[in-house]
Write a protein that binds this DNA or RNA. Sequence first.
DNA 1: TAGTGGTCTAGACCACGCC
DNA 2: GCGTGGTCTAGACCACTAC
Lengths: 244, 244
Amino acid sequence: MKSSQTIFNDTPLYAQIRAFIVARMHHGEWQPGDRIPGETELAKEYEVSQGTVRKAIDSLVENRLLLRRQGKGTYVASHNSELKLFHFFNISPNEGGRVLPETKVLTVDKRTGLHHELAALEMPAGTEVIHITRVRHLAGPPVIYETMTICANRFKSVLDLTKKQILNNIYELYEQNFGVIIRRTKDKVYAVAASALQAQLLDIEASTPLLCVHRLALDLEDTPVEYRETFCLTQNHHYHSRLS
Amino acid sequence: MKSSQTIFNDTPLYAQIRAFIVARMHHGEWQPGDRIPGETELAKEYEVSQGTVRKAIDSLVENRLLLRRQGKGTYVASHNSELKLFHFFNISPNEGGRVLPETKVLTVDKRTGLHHELAALEMPAGTEVIHITRVRHLAGPPVIYETMTICANRFKSVLDLTKKQILNNIYELYEQNFGVIIRRTKDKVYAVAASALQAQLLDIEASTPLLCVHRLALDLEDTPVEYRETFCLTQNHHYHSRLS
DNA sequence: TAGTGGTCTAGACCACGCC
DNA sequence: GCGTGGTCTAGACCACTAC
């Protein structure tokens, strides 16, 4: 990169290149599934060495924003690829392998966000949100009741979809319809007693212990996108996580 | 690395170097907290370029087995360093910052492992284990009841310790007394109703919903080391996890 | 055969911590 | 000033994919 173009002399070159690449993905120039230019080409374009571009791409591959295919090229990651299908869905049967959930959307409403929802999403009081509730099955009776809250402005056209059009993997919907890519989530997990409504929907007795997950999903720029509350029966299923 | 010494021509050089470094840590030549030789020195020793050693170290730093200090050197990570204190302890108060738990050890016994314990630890039926139970407080009344199961052979001298000598951060004990470094954990999380014993120990009513975590802790070589069952009150606390 | 990512080298300069 | 890790370069060869 020519010194005359170097704006941020305090940040490493590869970090600047990485930011440029993320910006082009975020802006929509490179869509999920697209192949991006080769390392040598990007190196020429930005006037840096191929090794520096490689280092920038390395860190994006680590964060699963890009994926490499040897001999073919580097691609923008997509949530609907097999690898990512289960990535943010960490509830599994106790016995047997992972199961893709079936989903029934119950309600889709627009309303003013509640205090704790807006606090989680870092939005000012009074902001309009879209509120979705749904029940999910995992190869059997219903085991998950879930509510999701998203910004009404950013996801306005969700209201135009029928309940059946709302995808099972809603992160895929964010990506395909709104260009919003979920990079990471923060979960807080509790044990609670089932409310009357939850008991009815999950066909259990009230006060049955339920796993309760408060999840915040963040996009590429670490902006909160969705606040979700998941209530899960853990008789035959569990929530899993790995630390390393 | 001279070609005559190259044993695994199918694996990349940097991966071989990484394996050598891990072996020297695992073997005890480099203890937690030690400084390892500089990149140039290791490069000379293994007869590879400094860049290759760097790539090997990079991946170990990512996995938190090593940590770099610019201008000083590269160090073997230690669980008692501030950075790692909370790393595998992911239960926090709902309000306020993280709190270091106080711990009271209840029992330390040697017995034959139960079926599900040995299955988790991948040990043959009939293996002897050490079983520890304890209660933990987080700046207030007790909120955690926990049982831990470890291999009796590997951790024999734990039986010689008094209950007070068993450290609050038991992974630190594994590291300091046995040279076992925990690299990662796999958690399965459930919601359950408190048993009579748990209710008594946590001073709550029986059937109160409790968070139940089944945790397997693995060492550097991905061998299961400890199986733990944690029961946690989530009135004022929560279990947290991040996916990315 | 041509282009891509994957690995590896040798050497350069910088920023930091320490003496 | 010296040694450390941190960044960057220019070029090499390999393995894989596609034509």
